[in-house]
Design a protein around this nucleic acid. Structure first.
Lengths: 211, 211, 211, 211
DNA sequence: GATGAATGAGCCTTCATTCAT
DNA sequence: TATGAATGAAGGCTCATTCAT
């Protein structure tokens, strides 16, 4: 899932020791905090280090660059989401179309909603720093998972499956982002989740070929 | 629609004279150009002024800050979109639910797809510089338009209309953004548009109360 | 005489206006001053700007990098020296071997001794920042000039002229540098100059083939 | 030979134990290696320690600072050269002027040419970090040795001996440096050495008073 | 003694913004 | 009114040096 463009985006040293591990975690956590409180604009290495309670030097001992920090953070987050969705798809493989739909939607939404603040911060990071590759890779995984899932539904065949998958993922991911980045995230989320389930059921119902 | 955080985001002088107006236009246009060609990263006042064929000094005569430039640009873009959607909603007021759905969806999508590159650039700008208020205001308009539209459908009453509107707008706007910011915008767009129409029809169908 | 390695080492803007020209001059002069007073170690852009009485920003308006500053300075200095020597060689072309020797030696030494402080500063700069190309180019000019000069002497033919030129230039340039970088530059220089003249006469006398 | 400006430049602990001595040696050797391979630009304590196979902490146990390392290195190198020259002078004491000349020149040149790469690296180091005192001290020894040597020549008395010694040493040392720092060190060196011998003979011949 | 994680001063450079011409 | 030279705060990052383990 990694393919750095220039210069390493990999952590500089493996956090073998406990202390180090904690430091790395603190730095990543601080990055999110700063992103959240001060915005991507003010996300400076000094602020990150400060919030993490370490010096800039220490920060650079673990991350080769500011960009790499975001890269790591986003990579991890996307991986978590993709994994959760893949897992759900595997579990629901062979069930009914409606069950598949629900599984996919709730897995994705719940993954993003688990920590909406973090999700929001990383949405910011993603569009500020070019992370196209990371995002594309993650979406590739989602497409594959969704494709396999629909293919395996035990009570349906999907017409025009490629377009369906593409559009389905788009509205699930895009809709979710819309909510999370929006003004009143938390309160509205449960209702949206509920509606999104309906939307997807309704949609897939229309593109199925009953068997 | 404006409520700047600090300092005015309004143009410094009203472009009463023709020349002024042209200059303002050139500057805004240049801003988009730079955004498009060089990316948000390299969007500097010097570049903008250069591309616009004026000096930095002149630029600052018409815009109080770089941020204001983006603000104006995004504001205008969002306004265009919202207006297009409002127009479509007005036109389709009192028609069937399906007609309403199609009208809303296609109006929104087409507004964004008219110049996908510009849309993409402005998505970037939006998340780079905090423009929450602008975005929220625009969404407010969309919500209102959608609400009125559904309310006026001549063959349906919508259950739980607030949540429906909220979620509907979310997937339309979010899905569209997803596509536009994605890797292969242009090719995939028509197919997505087509599916999105289906998705919304199917959804609204399920939340209607037939009359 | 210029062949920058990476990134431009050329001045960023041509100093067309008087003010600009003065600024550029002040910056270059300041660079020498800092080099002299604080040493190459402490040659920072901030110090240079400070001493020049301008801001760092201004400094960077005229020089794309700190390295370029040194590059320009050294380039100019080497060019002055080489030009002076070439001129002297041209003037003495066709005279006696002893006259040629004297002309070359005094031209070189006097060029370097004109402002020993500056010469010293630039010796430092030269070995601190890689300016091999500049130095090599300048030496190339010296070799050529010396070669032509000896070739044109009206009362001698030189044995093994390549080696002679090479060694001759080496001791003239090297000896001069030694003195200038040494502890008591000023006092000792005249005596050295006088001896160097003798040295070179004696040497060339031994490698001549009388005609 | 040492009179540091601030802080001691002496090793922190006398390397009484064998292991210590070996460590010190490894560190110094590593310093040269890094200087040679990576250049003075990249001569960092971390790299030195790494190459020496010790930790930075250990490095600082034996050297009070990076500068001290270079100081020690240069000091040793200059001492070697000066010693070699002194030895040669002692050996040739009382011989003919020409023999004395040859002895001095070849001793110096050969000392520097023994490992031209190291010499070159240390020339760099010398002008990078202010080592005036070290260099001056070394030259003092050379002057004394040369003075005594000429004084003791069995077939000549030198006119104006102070100036002669000064200039003689200057061209020998300066010329040699010129070659070693130049582009094509190795190939040209033998020829230069040969010419330098001639130059010095010719020179001293002209300043002798035959007895 | 040895280690290497942590420190933080300080470096080079950019760029939004101002203001004298 | 237009210009663009000048400003200087601020950013990312390095590296000599220290000190708890």
């Amino acid at each position: 899932m990694n393919s750095p463009t220039s210069g390493s985006l990999e952590p500089r040293k493996a956090p073998v020791q406990k202390r180090s591990k904690a430091t790395v975690e603190a730095i990543l956590e601080a990055t999110v905090q700063v992103l959240l409180r001060d915005g991507a604009e003010k996300l400076t290495t000094r602020r990150i280090a400060e919030r993490a309670g370490v010096s800039v030097g220490t920060l650079y001992q673990y991350a080769p660059s500011k960009e790499a920090l975001l890269y790591a953070l986003v990579s991890r987050h996307l991986d978590l989401t993709a994994s959760a969705v893949e897992q759900a798809c595997r579990t629901s493989h062979g069930r009914t179309l409606m069950q598949c739909s629900d599984a996919f939607v709730t897995a994705y939404v719940d993954a993003k909603a688990a920590d909406p603040e973090v999700s929001r911060a990383l949405y910011h990071a993603t569009s500020r720093f070019d992370m196209t590759e990371l995002v594309d890779a993650a979406f590739g995984r989602l497409y594959n998972a969704a494709h396999a899932l629909l293919d395996g539904a035990n009570d349906a065949v999907i017409k025009d499956i490629d377009h369906v998958v593409f559009s389905w993922v788009a509205i699930v991911a895009g809709g979710t982002r819309q909510i999370i980045e929006g003004a009143d995230t938390v309160e509205r989320f449960p209702a949206f989740r509920c509606q999104l389930v309906k939307i997807c059921r309704a949609y897939l119902e229309t593109v199925r070929i009953r068997e």
